[in-house]
Write a protein that binds this DNA or RNA. Structure first.
Length: 499
DNA sequence: ATCCAATTTATTTAC
DNA sequence: GTAAATCCAATTGGAT
């Protein structure tokens, strides 16, 4: 096993070196390309787009060389690196080319300004800091939901030590029924923007009713912000940073603290964008890939993330360290989600072909078993609890969307859906809307399929001439019913609204 | 079991 | 207009 690990790390490291060389080559081209495209007219339908500050470009052409040991990369110093067969001196000369713009890999905080791609982000920072000052959260919001949130906050839950109790009462209250008319969802022309270049891996809304802000992360390590209410060309309306050196695997904007935004990356780094300090702090760096990120809704201090091949780690802000670690899956974990009714209940989806529900209170137990395992024939790319916490939707490469509900989630239906997006488009991940009635998922025909929970089939498809690419990643605004964001493999974001 | 090579795929950008 | 480039997926089928 140890020797196996060694070769894994070796391979990974060599890959890194090769990639950095490739990166260097591509960066030159890219910076030239962005300069060019910035000076020419932007074609196509999009009305809004991120900006690149050409004055900053020369910086990218001035690469520096840094030396990094295994230790500084967060890898264990013993056994795996130098200790082993010692004959490989490439371990010693681990030189990596890093340009300032991609200094994303720096093992320390990054100034937001240094990784900002435009001229001025002060408007964005002001907007983010401004929303914190306004009264926000529960009380105000609940009223708008016609009791949806009220229902959530009441009632003791569900799964205790693997045995669920009294869900029937909840079922009677409805939740599978909905007042939402999906046919009324519309995409207005002004609600289309190119927020980042390339594949959007992750899209989130700010959990705010006053500030309608979308955050996206792409494959190149860019994090983009779009204030949906901004005017075209408005300074700070669309802002882009480059705090990471690889695909962004997770973004968490906690409702209790929106000025601090966690982002995770395949390169093993987790950063915290602090709008007050105007930095992307480095909160964690791992030698292994980080595949997803999640927070409990009632705890902004803790972070759960998927690390390496099947592992989950919990990071605690109070200690600044990992406070728990376990390995619930045999392969990469593609999503983590908490149950809104009980934050001890967590669900994970994995490339090992399963999605599982766990009780965090049992992770120290001798036999730590999942409360429920949903099996697919291929990799599962997402598993999300419904707003009520009573159902689960899973999306798998076996071309199904699974909806599990009922006591102990035993009532499972698999709905056929073409999820084979191929290489260039990030994998679909079905999400819930604003109640337990509907699930939304992009399709390969540039639409968003609406699956009825009750009917267990797609009942409607959102289509629009403005949605000119596949909306592979979706987000439902947590408070604003009917506000649905779709993000594409080309960096566009579409925000559907009600009326 | 693990590894390699070939293949598929959508969108942007280059020409 | 069309062709080339993208390049941290996930197969499948062949090799070891």
């Amino acid at each position: 096993m140890a020797t196996q690990k060694l070769t894994d790390y070796e391979r990974k490291r060599l890959e890194n070196i090769r990639r950095n060389e490739e990166l260097m080559a591509s960066l030159k081209l890219q910076s030239m390309a962005t300069q060019l495209s910035a000076s020419t007219k932007r074609p196509r339908v999009e009305t809004k787009s991120y900006k690149v500050n050409s004055e900053k470009q020369p910086k990218t052409q001035d690469p520096t060389v840094i030396r990094r040991s295994l230790r500084t990369r967060g890898l264990p110093p013993d056994a795996k690196g130098l200790g082993g067969d010692g004959g490989d001196d490439s371990v010693v000369k681990t030189l990596e080319y890093v340009d300032p713009k991609a200094s994303a890999r720096k093992l320390g905080p990054l100034s937001m300004r240094d990784v900002y791609s435009g001229v001025s982000d002060t408007a964005l920072i002001e907007a983010i800091l401004g929303v914190e000052k306004k009264p926000q959260l529960g009380l105000e919001v609940k009223g708008e939901f016609g009791g949806c949130k009220e229902e959530r906050s009441s009632g003791a839950f569900i799964l205790v030590g693997g045995v669920s109790c009294d869900l029937s009462k909840k079922l009677e209250e409805g939740g599978v029924e909905s007042d939402l008319k999906v046919e009324s969802l519309t995409l207005n022309e002004e609600n289309v923007a190119r927020v980042v270049p390339g594949n959007v891996m992750n899209v989130r809304f700010f959990p705010s009713t006053s500030l309608r802000m979308v955050v996206v992360g792409n494959k190149a390590g860019n994090v983009g912000f779009w204030n949906v209410d901004s005017k075209e060309g408005e300074e700070g309306g669309i802002c882009m940073y480059h705090p990471h050196s690889g695909p962004i695997s997770g973004i968490s904007v906690h409702q209790d603290c929106m000025s601090k935004i966690f982002t995770s990356c395949y390169d093993g780094f987790i950063r915290l964008m602090d709008a007050e300090k105007e930095v992307f702090d480095l909160v964690y760096s791992s030698g292994e890939t980080i595949y997803s990120l999640a927070q409990q809704s009632n705890n902004a201090k803790c972070l759960y993330f998927a690390e390496g091949r099947g592992g989950i780690s919990m990071w605690d802000e109070r200690t600044g360290n990992i406070s728990a670690q376990w390995s619930p899956h045999d392969d990469r974990i593609n999503s983590i989600d908490f149950n809104s009714e009980n934050s001890n209940i967590i669900t994970t989806s994995s490339t090992d072909g399963t999605a599982c529900i766990w009780d965090l209170r049992c992770i120290d137990a001798d036999k730590f078993e999942s409360l429920k395992t949903i099996g697919h024939k291929r990799a599962v790319h997402s598993a999300y609890f419904s707003p009520s916490g009573r159902s689960l939707v899973t999306t798998s490469l076996d071309d199904t969307v699974g909806i599990s509900s009922g006591v102990n989630f035993e009532d499972i239906s698999m709905i056929s859906h073409d999820n084979n997006t191929g290489r260039w488009i990030p994998k679909f991940k079905a999400i819930w809307g604003w109640d337990d009635a509907y699930v939304f998922i992009g399709n390969k025909n540039r639409g968003i399929d609406v699956i009825s929970h009750l009917q267990r089939r797609a009942v409607f498809t959102l289509k629009s001439p403005y949605m000119s690419a596949i909306p592979c990643r979706l987000a439902a605004h947590p408070y604003n019913v009917g506000m649905l964001a779709g993000a594409t493999g080309g960096g566009q974001v579409y925000v559907w609204t009600l009326g």
